[in-house]
C-alpha cells in the first residue's frame, strides 16, 4: 500500500499534464486509424478477388510489421520530417496487417451459397459486397481494427522520440530524469488506455454480431447498450 503512495501523488499532481498528453495520444491514434481503415479495408476487399495476390499482399503487410519502429522513423524523417507525420505514417503501416488480413478473411469466409444466392437474385458485384459480404464480414473486420489499435497505442508512445508528442513524452522524460514515478504512472495510464480502447471496440464488435443475428455471450456493457437500442 505504502509503495503506491508516491505513484498516486504523482498522478494527482500532474493530472492536467497527463490528461493533455493522453488526449494528444488518442488524437494521433485517431488520425492514424482514420487513414488506416479505408486503406486496409479497400486493400482487403480488392485482394479477396484473387487468392494469389491476397497471400502476397498479406505476406507483405506481415513484413512491414517486422521493421523496428525506431528504424522506420529513421527512414521516414528525411522524407516526412520530424513530428507527427512520420509517426502517423508508421502507425498506418503497422495497422495494415490486422486490418487487411481480417477484411480478407472475413470476406472469404462468407459461404459461397450466400454470395451465389445474391448473384442469383440479380445483385451486381458491388451490391453483393454491400448487402452480403461486408455486413457478414464486419465483426471480423472489427476484430482486426481492435487488434490494430492495441498495437499502435504502444508504437505511438515511441513516436514521442521524434517529437510526435503523446504519453511517450513523459516516459522519455522519466528515463532522462531517472524519475521512476513518472515512468510507472505513465505506463499504467498507457496500458489503461489500451485496455479501454480494446474493451470499447470489443463491445462494438459484439453489437455488430448481435445486429447480424448471432447468438453470442455478451459483455455487460454490450448487454446494456443492446437492450436500449433493440
Amino acid at each position: 500500500m505504502q509503495l503506491s503512495v508516491p505513484y498516486v501523488s504523482f498522478f494527482v499532481e500532474r493530472f492536467d499534464e497527463i490528461l493533455a498528453l493522453t488526449v494528444e495520444h488518442v488524437e494521433i491514434i485517431a488520425v492514424a486509424m482514420g487513414l488506416a481503415i479505408p486503406i486496409g479495408v479497400t486493400v482487403g476487399v480488392l485482394i479477396s478477388f484473387n487468392e494469389r495476390v491476397a497471400s502476397t499482399v498479406i505476406w507483405l503487410t506481415g513484413i512491414m510489421m517486422t521493421i523496428p519502429s525506431i528504424a522506420l522513423f529513421g527512414l521516414l524523417i528525411p522524407v516526412l520530417g520530424i513530428g507527427s507525420p512520420p509517426v502517423i505514417f508508421a502507425l498506418v503501416m503497422y495497422s495494415q496487417l490486422p486490418i487487411v488480413r481480417n477484411t480478407y478473411t472475413g470476406i472469404s469466409q462468407v459461404a459461397d451459397a450466400q454470395t451465389e444466392v445474391g448473384e442469383g437474385m440479380g445483385m451486381t458485384r458491388k451490391q453483393r459486397l454491400r448487402y452480403v459480404q461486408l455486413p457478414i464480414a464486419l465483426p471480423v473486420i472489427m476484430a482486426g481494427l481492435r487488434n490494430a489499435v492495441i498495437i499502435i497505442v504502444g508504437v505511438a508512445a515511441i513516436g514521442a522520440f521524434i517529437g510526435a508528442g503523446g504519453l511517450g513524452d513523459l516516459i522519455f522524460k522519466g528515463i532522462r530524469l531517472q524519475n521512476m514515478n513518472m515512468i510507472v504512472v505513465t505506463t499504467v495510464v498507457l496500458s489503461l488506455l489500451a485496455l479501454t480502447l480494446d474493451y470499447g471496440l470489443g463491445v462494438v464488435e459484439q453489437l455488430l454480431r448481435l445486429h447480424n443475428g448471432e447468438e453470442i455471450e455478451r459483455a455487460k456493457l454490450t448487454h446494456a447498450i443492446w437492450s436500449v437500442i433493440a
Partner: peptide, 22 residues
C-alpha cells in the same frame, strides 16, 4: 444478366437466407 435475374425468383435450401438480415 442482372435484369433477367431480378425477373426470376430464386429459392434454394434454407442456407439461402441471409442470416445477418431480418
Amino acid at each position: 444478366k442482372i435484369d433477367l435475374r431480378r425477373n426470376i425468383g430464386y429459392v434454394i435450401q434454407e442456407i439461402g437466407l441471409f442470416d445477418h438480415m431480418t
